[in-house]
Amino acid sequence: MTDRADARRAAGAAAMPAAFSAARVGAMVLRYSYLLRSSWPRILDLIYWPAVQMLMWGFLQLYIAENSGFFARAGGTFIGAVLLWDVLFRGQLGFSISFLEEMWSRNLANIMMSPLRPAEFVAALMIMSLIRLAIGLVPVTLLAIAFFGFNLYGLGLALVAFFVNLILTSWAVGIFTSGLLLRYGLGAENMAWTIMFIFLPLTCVYYPVSALPDWLQVIAWMLPPTYVFEGMRALLIDKVFHAGLMAQALALNAVFFAAGVFAFLAFLRSARRIGSLLHTGE
């Protein structure tokens, strides 16, 4: 053994890595951005479906508005709803797909064996969720202005409150889903694609909570996005911003996020017990 080896061992022993490293988060973001940049179908896919949905709901709203006084007054609620729904849905999908990329490429064991910590991994997935959301939604919001004169950015500070609450819910669900994938492998992949759809009827994206039966309304009010979609309708129809609704959503999101992290860590522990980190197939 050489002196160089002794010196390196001594240096290595002293160099305890930081508990949270922005450099390691940056490395993972770099990894996902390389992937996105290398594949134009991936980028097109981010824009395609949100654009199709927005156009469909936008034309439907135009048609209804021409034949109904109420919908004429409620201009933009459908387009606003579909755009905010995409924040929720695409936010979670952006998180989960980045995670799935590791499983599809059989790279997860490399990642789990590296000094990357779970909190850093999650932070990188959150950043990628925002990047993918921006790539997908910004062009679509511009299309909404061009086709229907609906300016989402005209909602101002209310949009910030809506966005923060929706993205927090999407991350909480994304963290939970990633835990499921760790534990159950690609057999749970469909959950990553479809789990958010349970929120579509229950959070009343396109209709008020009062449209639900009483017992279902109780469940709806347990979900943070319900407050956002109610708040959006109040703003667009009654021109009133309910800060209280956003505060309630934020409090519920804190609970959802904590539950998502707790579930993720529990699934990770379970994955270590059953050995599914090394074999992440079906």
């Binding site: 160099a15 890595p17 490293s21 450099a23 390691r24 940056g26 490395a27 993972m28 770099l30 990894r31 390389y34 992937l35 290398s38 594949s39 990329e101 490429s105 059989r106 790279n107 064991a109 490399n110 990642i111 590296s114 000094p115 990357l116 090394l278 074999h279």
Partner: peptide, 25 residues
């Protein structure tokens, strides 16, 4: 190193090694 684990295939060798080098500090 294990033959049962791969690195992302779309990334170049330099990109893959760069990502892991940063992860390992």
């Amino acid at each position: 190193e294990s033959p049962y684990v791969d690195m992302p295939m779309r990334l170049t060798v330099r990109q893959n090694l760069g990502v892991f080098a940063r992860l390992y500090g």
